[in-house]
Design a protein around this nucleic acid. Structure first.
Lengths: 341, 341
DNA sequence: ATTGTTTACTTAAACGGTTAAGTAAATCCA
DNA sequence: TGGATTTACTTAACCGTTTAAGTAAACAAT
């Protein structure tokens, strides 16, 4: 059997309290004698004693664990964010439970219930669609929660997003300055604020230059099954407006698919292009593409920081019995623009 | 405060036991009356009661949580494996704690200690180098453990790997059949059995055709800082053997870097190529590359299955007091070969 | 009418820590 | 020399579940 405090205490003829104090580093503070301290440490080490954090958690009410819910862990963007979050969380003393919602609202709700049952100290969530009952309940209960990447006005939670509209506006202006007159805009699921903001950014730039979005150059591709849909959309663009001279992709995924399309159709991508978020491979595929690079590291770190702040707050609240809700932190980070064409 | 069993029990004038039985679905079995059952369920639902799994775990000794340790969550291969593992684990009733070892042995040890302290029911590990003390201890203690992707003979643990040697041999044969006489072999960190097996597979094929590995065509690139090293290696190959006619990459990462090199140098990759594991983007970058595709899904599912088997075994053992060690399961999965050139 | 069984619960201990409150002995101070 | 303080601990309750063992009342069987 795994050694326990009780085991150590009995073996050394001490009380559990004394052993607990020594092993949690409070020996000095609690006036434990040098001799006892050493005896305990030595014996614990010889058993490779590891304190049972489950028992500790039950007592303290903290699990030192953060729950992370992403649409998909295997997406390159989210997996990078996950990595940053894990790294930051770890050196702040937290572990990470990760689960993929697969962009399914019911699954998201289910994960949240599970995470709550497992008593994670807080949740970082990239919400799916207009999130349902459990997210709202989290907010209502004041459960530490930070949402990332996607913003929904009806969720009164802390969030970390990026300056979608501005970034897209500036990228588009660049395309216009390069002489583009017929810019195609490829985007997805417009019910995501993220995506509508991006479209608005493009439209801002067009408007300022006296242009406007040609409906024949606008394609909205559903994330579910985008591989086929994007082909359809691009086909239509090239037949209806053969002299299209610029492409704006609201996500790296669409850009990738488009590059593949260009390749398959033998189209040399000699038009101007711009895209939100880049993958290293873009250098090879379409080196002239202009990108707004997502501050992945900053998103991760800021999310953890924001969450930790809420968690400490919640701890304080539990003590002082104050029930006042903290105003959520709303943070917008900037993309770094890279003009390459 | 969060509602507890006690809270519900007191409110309804029942004992904690009764409430516990009802809420854990044992009402029927334990002869709880219909009326009581309904009262309890109804009140619990109205409170959105979620059982405290921490308390349950302390009692049952199970956390229903699996620990996953990978060199890096953001690597495309590992993040896909992670996704499969999470998905499989979830529908078997387990959550996932994930941590990156960053290929650092001390960090790996630290993560293992942490996971043990948090009492995860079992660990899935892609080991780093010749793993140190904590991995050996896990094995020694019979802690449920399945290693994946990398195999070390000195670790007497269950493992899931792929048929590296055979896959590489067959890919190489294909290159030879296509007429290659001067095949370059790019690989990494040869202390990983994975990598030495792959090299041996290539050598097998060469030997069978009466060829042998030309040292000038062999490049070993350290994972740490491979971006620069691979340039050096490729430069050397092209100057020393300008008529190199085939390339074998032991990982997708090296292939990607090479494609980038080719692009930058303006080299048209018209030679034969082969590679272990593919990324979707290869279709665009070098469509003729021959690949052995890793069975990502199968790796993930098999790993979880193997671990669950050990965990159930361990549960049984705790009861029956038997201490006999189960023989570790050793599973080798096959890559699916795709010849494209 | 007595004994046995079933129904519908309750009591209390256990899981492995933390922590407020208590205590006996040694040391300090005047 | 006696009271106060300090040192070095111990006792016991608690966190929120599970579960073995107990019990009182109702019902059944002989």
């Amino acid at each position: 059997m795994k050694p326990s405090l009780k085991h150590i205490a009995e073996h050394l003829g001490l009380s559990k309290t004394t052993v607990s104090w020594v092993l949690s580093g409070q020996a000095e503070q609690k006036n434990i004698s040098q001799a006892t301290t050493e005896k305990v440490l030595e014996y614990a080490a010889s058993l490779h004693y590891q304190p049972n954090m489950i028992a500790r958690s039950l007592n303290t009410g903290e699990t030192k664990t953060i729950g992370l819910i992403l649409p998909s862990i295997s997406d390159t963007f989210y997996s990078e964010v996950a990595r940053e979050i894990e790294s930051r969380a770890r050196n702040q003393g937290y572990s990470l439970m990760i689960s993929s919602s697969e962009s399914d609202i019911d699954r998201e709700d289910e994960i949240i219930r599970l995470f709550k049952a497992k008593r994670v100290d807080g949740i970082i969530l990239a919400p799916t669609k207009r999130s349902k009952v459990e997210v709202l309940r989290l907010i209502d209960e004041g459960y530490p929660l930070t949402t990332i990447d996607r913003y929904f006005p009806e969720l009164n939670a802390s969030y970390i997003i990026i300056n979608n509209r501005d970034s897209c506006c500036m990228l588009t202006k660049h395309l216009i300055n390069k002489g583009c007159k017929k810019i195609a805009l490829l985007t997805t699921n417009s019910y995501l604020t993220t995506m509508s903001q991006r479209r608005e950014g493009v439209e801002d730039a067009l408007r300022e230059s006296g242009l406007q979005l040609d409906p024949r150059l606008y394609g909205e591709v559903d994330f579910a099954g985008y591989e086929k849909n994007i082909h359809r959309v691009l086909n239509s663009i090239f037949t209806e407006v053969p002299d299209v001279d610029g492409f704006f992709f609201t996500t790296h995924i669409l850009a990738l698919e488009a590059f593949q399309y260009f390749y398959e159709k033998g189209i040399k991508p000699e038009f101007e292009m711009a895209c939100i978020h880049e993958e290293p491979i873009f250098k090879v595929l379409a080196p002239q593409i202009n990108v707004a690079r997502m501050p992945v590291g900053e998103i991760g770190r800021t999310a953890v920081n924001s969450l930790i702040e809420q968690m400490e707050n919640a701890k304080g609240k539990a003590k002082s019995r104050k029930k006042q809700q903290q105003e959520p932190k709303r943070i917008t980070l900037s993309c770094s623009l890279e003009f390459r064409s």
